[in-house]
Design a protein around this nucleic acid. Structure first.
Length: 477
RNA sequence: CGGGACAUAGCGCAGCUCGGUUAGCGCGCCUGCCUUGGGAGCAGGAGGUCGCAGGUUCAAAUCCUGCUGUCCCGACCA
């Protein structure tokens, strides 16, 4: 008899998400407002995200560095848009060593300012460029309302900060990185993403242009999952960072920054999980397959021995697995537990299987069970991991495609959005007023101007003024 | 930051209206036995300054005030 602790997704989506995160032991509430503890199940996912992205960054020429958590308050004030954007979210340290500080420090909400203060020291000549640094760090943003993983006061992320000699090179870098995010999200997280440029209203505080990936979650709402910014010369000017060009002229340096955060883990939950708990894409799963031996005292050794025999070469084969040989839980209990924790593949081995030289293999995403011979377990599991990974992507893409609508009918969009959310490809005149109206009246924001948008004449869905392309609009987290 | 709800054992809750023995129940946990193919059973046991701080009272989980935290709904954001 299954004990169902998770609120069904259809009954209360928010509560379902919270239940999944807490009960699968990804995270727990911390005693600090808006902060959470990332537990081993969640941190294991983060480690795999880190590992994969870090390789992708290194392959594209980036290196890691680390800058301080504390930033002199005055630094934040040097770039006008930046300070305006981040001031409301700053946590400020005013005392240390039992005394009030001469100048307060802010806990970094992002590191552009402190990094560019250092780039000033390190950049003199065109020969010093480009600088392609990344850092893995924690940041603080004092949010009014927080949610596990998708919005917390402190979160973990990576922030790339690059410096270039030319505008073209900076733009190329900005686009390269947002494409890497898309590739990572789709390939590893099984999360299909729309990719495009942010509107001026939505872009990063201090950027010339911001690019993003926008996947659709199961409630048909967008989650901004990764952003890449072309910072132009804004920070170079604010921190007076110049280089001498080949021609001997002093020029301001061109900058980019880009980041993804532990929000991705929230995205993973929102994208794939179900009423039985977490569902993890195999490529990111800390444990990809769990073996549950079904034994009594007299055959325990024999059955666990078979588990070990089956998995003998799995480490070399690159399968991350665990043999759950605990004897204080019954098999049924373990089945439920591992399902709740989202392990992609479960292998059941009991005396009946042993007698027939077979095992039972269950996949988390569809709950399907198959019997296979002991000899073909490894191959079956390997194939299954590949299949689950692509099935999850296909399922997510199907949901997204079926809920992305091209429309010119404002009333229809509003009705659809109120009833069931969704993504809308709409004509927009480009004015801030129409963008604000969409948000104020319908909670719809323009998620991005997609790169691959068909260029076509049309009329703004809000004001009817002429428009040359469609944009992607939706409610967002 | 506004509006609403909630805060009692690790978790979920009852008790509070109408103050009065030793604050209960289910799950979980510990010990033992027995079990093990979808969250078993029996017996025994441990575990609480009733979110925090004040106040009223002979007496507060219960009444009053303040604070903090969580959730939901808004406004703001990765």
């Amino acid at each position: 008899m299954a004990k169902q602790n998770i609120t069904p997704r259809d009954k209360d989506y928010s509560q379902w998400y919270i239940d999944v995160v807490l009960q699968s032991k990804l995270a727990d509430y911390a005693p600090v407002k808006g902060c959470m503890v990332i537990r081993p199940n969640g941190y294991g996912l983060w480690e795999n995200i880190q590992k994969t992205l870090d390789e992708m960054f290194k392959e594209t020429g980036h290196v890691n560095a680390y800058f301080p958590l504390l930033i002199p308050e005055s630094f934040i004030h040097k770039e006008a848009e930046h300070v305006e954007g981040f001031s409301p979210e700053l946590a400020v340290m005013t005392h240390a060593g039992g005394k009030k500080l001469e100048e307060p420090y802010v806990l970094r909400p992002t590191s552009e300012t402190i990094i560019w203060s250092m780039y000033k020291k390190w950049i003199q000549s065109w020969r010093d460029l480009p600088i392609l640094y990344n850092q893995w760090a924690n940041v603080f943003r004092w949010e009014m309302r927080t949610r596990l993983f998708t919005r917390t006061t402190e979160f973990l992320w990576q922030e790339g900060h690059t410096a270039h000699a030319t505008q073209e090179e900076a733009q190329e870098e900005t686009l390269k990185m947002v494409n890497i995010y898309k590739e990572f999200a789709e390939e590893f997280m099984a999360m299909p993403c729309y990719i495009g440029q942010k509107t001026d209203k939505e872009k990063f505080a201090g950027a010339v242009s911001t690019y993003c990936i926008e996947p659709m979650m199961q409630n048909k709402i967008a989650l901004q999952a990764g952003t890449s910014h072309n910072l132009g010369q804004n920070f170079a000017k604010a921190f007076d960072v110049t280089y001498q060009s080949k021609e001997g002229k002093l020029e301001y340096v061109w900058a980019t920054s880009w980041g993804v955060s532990t929000r991705l883990i929230g995205g993973l939950v929102h994208q794939h999980s179900d009423d039985n708990g977490l569902v993890i894409p195999p490529k990111l799963a800390p444990i990809q397959a769990v073996l549950v031996p079904i034994f009594k005292k007299d055959n325990k050794e024999e059955i666990i021995g078979k588990c070990k025999e089956i998995t003998e070469n799995w480490k070399n084969a690159g399968i991350r697995f665990k043999i759950d040989d605990r004897d204080n839980y019954k098999p049924g209990w373990k089945f439920n537990e591992w399902e709740l924790q989202g392990i992609p593949v479960r292998i059941e081995i009991g005396p009946r299987d042993l007698a027939e030289n077979q095992v039972v293999i269950a996949r988390r995403d569809t709950s399907e069970k198959v019997k296979v011979s002991v000899e073909s377990v490894t191959e079956t599991v390997q194939n299954l991991l590949v299949d689950i990974q692509s099935s999850l992507f296909d399922k997510a893409k199907k949901l997204r495609d079926e809920n992305t609508f091209t429309t010119d009918d404002y009333n229809w969009m509003v009705k659809k959005n109120d009833e069931d959310n969704g993504f809308f490809n709409i004509h927009w005149c480009g004015s801030r007023a129409c963008e604000d109206k969409l948000q104020n009246d319908n909670k719809i924001t323009i998620r991005c101007i997609p790169f691959d948008n068909p260029q076509e004449k049309g009329k703004c869905i809000v004001c009817g003024f002429e428009s040359n392309e469609r944009v992607l609009a939706a409610k967002s987290f």
